[in-house]
Design a protein around this nucleic acid. Structure first.
Lengths: 373, 373
DNA sequence: GCCCCTGCTGCACACGTGTACGATAGCCAT
DNA sequence: ATGGCTATCGTACACGTGTGCAGCAGGGGC
């Protein structure tokens, strides 16, 4: 009786609303379909979920009607009752960073396979803003969160309890270890790159880092130092310079290195963007890569193989890392719904191997430069 | 057992003050706050919206309690009643395309300023998939949609009525014009680039396009032809080659051009990625850029200024275009809620000017090559 | 004493969907 | 004829929030 039919068209005497908004045919609801099919709305719901509880031909009829009327069940209403939104939040420093793009791509890929949506948010590497966007994601009741290059890291531990949302970190930049994370083997990477340079005869090797205070920078610097120590080369503090992970700042830093009385014959860069600037600075002084100065990068961004010379770098399987983060998040999410205890410690910290890709930007140290010491 | 025992408490008619289900501490709801503050839940709702309807100190007390208990209003429940989700959908071909990244960045920027969330979806330049993700976005009841490099374009016109969701296109790739779009002046861009080459004395100028069948490729080819015609140079079909917008395919296509009996002294590329491959192919044959062959790109991606030589290209203000698309989407969305008639034709098609950036990859045509004809 | 107005609050909805539970009809075994 | 089972389908919730409207206290004007 109180079917509460949306059919205001029916001449109900009490429809005395002034100015019936006419509402311009808004999206059909499940009740509209139910009315058209002359069934109750739960039957429609079940039919569209392919539930075995509804008669086969009834279900077919309902599906036909739903199809014809362009009905699409509201994910927001469904989310309200099922208590999960099939949505995850992704926090990156900024999307136009090639590293973040690649990771995002891997995440989106896996998420889409499972019909999950991805909400994108930029942190701009600002801890305050990172916290804010994570809160906003929680407000939207995402089922899980992935944060890349987090500046907050371990601070998520309390938040994790408060928000009740699984979180996976990719390349956490906060000193200390978080519960669930996917990280690249930073130290191994730069150690391999530096060893490669040493093997080529270099002794004066600079490290061009990132002044942002990232954990990855500290680890990469450590790997560089390890390789030096293993080869019996003293670490020279004046050869440790700092950019900001972008080419522009790297130009200045590299130029300063080249002005040193005893300038380096090789430079191990924090990442490929930094290497881009370093190479430019080297050329600006009329020097050649790799004949005068060898350069290594980190990441293996797509352009590394297309530079002149091609860039020797440490490959980071960025897309794969995104995929792994998403896969782990799925495990955590399913573990959370099925039972409290299960899946809690199934995945924790994953360390991905870094691979040195030798290309054209590194070469044998010049004799006279080596002796110059 | 079912963890849905929250219903039990509500079913009990006595306003149960004790035996709060405890419920494994799921997110607090507005009713929890109301109980703590000894008010009704609508009062909490109004207090948190800073409604002038609630007493100032009552509101302060409520906000205090909400703050302390870490309460965050559910955006999904709110979305259900208010009928808008403060969320927009963004469809790109693939996020790791630098062009898409930049546009995305501009969109996210503006969206975030207005506290809107962005759902990211990849179309992989597949029309079928593009339609699917747009449908899924509609299912999630996004307030608006932006599609970059759409393969479907004008087909959105009917969908627009069905979905009742404003759509803005960025660089629509479907022949024909859509209602709301932001596009770059493709023809002007390549015309300027080609004129620049002609001015440098080049006569044998190739066009290295994209076989994907994009509208932008057709327009850029047209601009190239226009410049040739204006200079009285016949268009040579064998000089129109095709890649796929990525460096790898461009290498092959460029190599074929260089093997022509009468090979070009300059090449106008569809985009910077194509130029990257073209330059590599040129060098692979022992030729120099720009001394032997001049190269122009399109987009002005971040690496263009860091290549060797630096790349002469047509700048596309990608981030700005993203911002414009988002700004227009906001106008459309507000126009839709406020009234049917308003804002309908406020914004339509915006054409953004392309700017030629002359750098090092273009130079004067060699005399002997010009005479080689 | 009555009325109206203002300031504040609670009641009762509504949003669109999912799901536990009851109801009905048909069928079969007893 | 009775009871029980199966196959369907409808009824009544619930999810968490926003909002129109009624209600209620207090104050001021008559």
């Amino acid at each position: 009786m109180s079917d509460n039919d949306g059919g205001k068209a029916a001449a109900v005497p009490h429809a005395g609303m002034k100015h019936v908004p006419r509402q311009a045919s808004r999206q059909p609801s499940i009740k509209d379909i139910a009315r058209l099919a002359r069934v109750s709305h739960p039957t429609v719901s079940r039919a569209l979920q392919n539930s075995p509880l509804v008669n086969a031909e009834t279900a077919a009829k309902i599906r036909k009607i739903a199809e014809d009327s362009g009905y699409r069940a509201s994910a927001v209403a469904r989310g309200l009752v099922t208590r999960h939104t099939r949505t995850i939040g992704l926090v990156v420093t900024t999307v136009d960073d090639p590293f973040a793009s690649e990771v995002t791509c891997g995440i989106e890929e896996i998420a889409n396979d499972h019909r999950y949506a991805v909400i994108l948010a930029n942190s701009h590497a600002d801890p305050e803003r990172e916290r804010r966007v994570v809160q906003e994601l929680a407000e939207r009741r995402v089922d899980g969160i992935i944060v890349t290059s987090s500046r907050v890291g371990a601070l998520y531990l309390p938040l994790l309890k408060e928000l009740e949302v699984p979180i996976v970190l990719v390349n956490d930049q906060y000193p200390g270890e978080f519960v669930h994370s996917v990280m690249i083997a930073n130290r191994d990477g730069t150690r391999a790159a530096t060893e490669h340079l040493i093997e080529l005869g270099h002794r004066r090797i600079a490290y061009l880092g990132d002044r942002g205070g990232y954990q990855s920078d500290a680890e990469r610097l450590a790997g560089y130092k390890e390789a030096l120590a293993a080869a019996g080369i003293d670490f020279a503090p004046e050869l440790a310079a700092e950019g900001d992970g972008r080419p522009e700042a790297a130009i200045e830093a590299m130029d300063a290195l080249l002005q040193l009385h005893h300038s380096p014959t090789a430079v191990c860069c924090y990442n490929d963007m930094t290497a881009l600037g370093a190479m430019r600075a080297i050329r600006a002084r009329g020097l050649r890569v790799p004949e005068d100065v060898s350069v290594t990068g980190f990441d293996d961004l797509f352009f590394a193989a297309y530079l002149t010379p091609t860039l020797t770098t440490v490959r980071q399987p960025m897309r794969r890392m995104g995929q792994m983060a998403m896969e782990n998040l799925f495990k955590l999410m399913s573990g959370q719904t099925s039972g409290q205890a299960s899946g809690q410690d199934s995945v924790v910290q994953i360390k991905v191997a870094a691979e040195l890709i030798v290309r054209g930007s590194t070469g044998k140290a010049q004799k006279h430069e080596g002796n110059h010491a």
